[in-house]
Structures are given as C-alpha cells and as structure tokens.
Design a protein around this nucleic acid. Structure first.
Lengths: 128, 128
DNA sequence: GTGACCTTAACGACGCGTAATTGTGG
DNA sequence: GCCACAATTACGCGTCGTTAAGGTCA
C-alpha cells in the first residue's frame, strides 16, 4: 500500500507521471508550474507529489491559457480574476433573488393585515 | 494648428512621441501594443496616431502589468477581466440599492392605501 | 527641405517546455 | 536492485523591446 495517503473516493490522487499524461504535458512542466505558484499538489511523507482531481482540472485550465498564448504570470492572474468574476456573478444572482423575495414578503405581510384569509375571492386591485 | 482634431479640454490628444515619453517606453512599443489589440488610439486624416488621456492611463496599466511579468496576451485578458470585475461590482451595488428602494416603495404604497392622504403629518417612518 | 511620423525587418534578451544528469525513495 | 520521482542544468524556440532602413505628410 502507498503508505500515508487517504484514498477516499472523492479525493483521487495521481503521481506526477499520471497527472502529466492526463494533461498531455511533460512531467517537468508540472514541476515548473508548481515553482511558479500555479499548482500546489499534496506531498507524501517521502516527498513525492500527489495530484488531486481538482489539481488536474486546474492543470487543464493552465494548458488552455498557455495554448492561448499567455505566459505563466498571466495565467496566474487570469485564473484569479476568473474566480473573482464567477464569485461576483454568483453573489449578484443571490442578491437579485433575495431582493424579489423581500418585496414579495412585504406584499404578503400587508395582505395578511388587510384581508381575512377565510374570505378572499378578489382581495385587492392595485390601481383602483 | 493641428488640422482636423478637436482640442476640447477633456479630450487632450498626444502624438506618439509624447505618449511614449509619458509612459516611459519606446514609441515603437506603442505601435506593437496597437498591433496586438491593447490600444486603439485615434488617427488624424494623414494617418498619425493621437493618444487621449484615457489611452495614456491604459498605457500605464499595460506598463504595470508587463513590468509584473505578463506577456501581451496576458495583459489583454487581465485588463478585460478587470473591467468585468469592476462592472460586476458596480452592478452589484446598484442592485442592492434598488432592492432596498423597492421594499421601501412597497411599504409606502400600502401605507398610502391605509391612511387618507389629507390626514398625514408624518406619513411613514421606516424603522418604527 | 527638414523633421516627425509611418511600416517592415533584424537583432538581443528573456521565458517556457523538453531533455539530460545525478541523486534518492519505495 | 530496479524503477519512478526529485532537483538542477542545458538547449531550442517563440515573444518582446529596441534599433535601423526606407517612405510619406506637414
């Protein structure tokens, strides 16, 4: 057995040669990426790198960006900014959702105050 | 006079040598940036470039990023993503503002229905 | 006619990926 | 003891900034 690494199904871990093959690059390239701060794979007690599924995804993204002509510092910044954009998009969607819910809640509150719940064929007309 | 360019105070325009000096780079470098799609200065009828104050700002940003080690394709993407981030931040602030206004408007509408207009010295207090 | 601008080409420096070398761990 | 990994070094290729050469507009 491979010593001191947990092998839970969600946390698959590859050695550098397999990770390199999965991304279609030279193993040495992965070491360069790590040195430049683009990846931070786990390490075994003996010092060997172990790449998670997330590392592989990130590795593929790095490949896309370098293929598009960016150098490694550019890749670093672009990946950070892309994370920032998706974070903001999610927050924007959340705020919009909560906003409409807040208005709806306010409506319902006044409805409850104005109209007996047991007796409402056409309770209230906005413009009349 | 410099022919066919308006010289309104808000739209200051520099020739390439001055723009290059303002950013501390070689004029030819500015032509490269343009070729790579990082800048798009105005042109005179004769074909000369004229750089606006906005172009100079952008030029300084390009210098910051290249000094930080990005290549030009990286600069392109980073600047685009930075614009995207600020756009999203602005929209997020706007939506938050409009959301609170919408709730307040809803409150006021029901208050108006409940209380005769002729008889309201202090119509409604949000927090009370 | 003299500059400053234009474009294209060439040169040097640097970054990146691959390969080779040597050492170490499982 | 063998094979894969780790780290460092060397090499080839592409990109970037500068410079040079030749043409055009004011």
């Amino acid at each position: 057995m491979a010593a001191d690494l947990k092998h839970s199904s969600a946390r698959a871990v590859y050695v550098i040669s397999v990770a390199a093959e999965l991304a279609g690059v030279h193993p040495q390239t992965l070491r360069i990426y790590e040195r430049k701060g683009l990846l931070d794979p786990a390490r075994t007690g003996g010092g060997s790198r172990r790449y998670s599924e997330r590392d592989i995804e990130r590795l593929r993204r790095i490949q896309d960006l370098t293929t598009a002509g960016l150098n490694l510092e550019g890749v670093r910044r672009v990946m950070y900014l892309e994370d920032e954009v998706t974070r903001l998009q999610r927050e924007l969607a959340r705020v919009k959702q909560e906003a409409s819910e807040a208005v709806e809640r306010t409506h319902r509150q006044y409805r409850r105050d104005l109209v007996p719940v047991s007796n409402t064929p056409a309770p209230w007309q906005p413009g009349r």
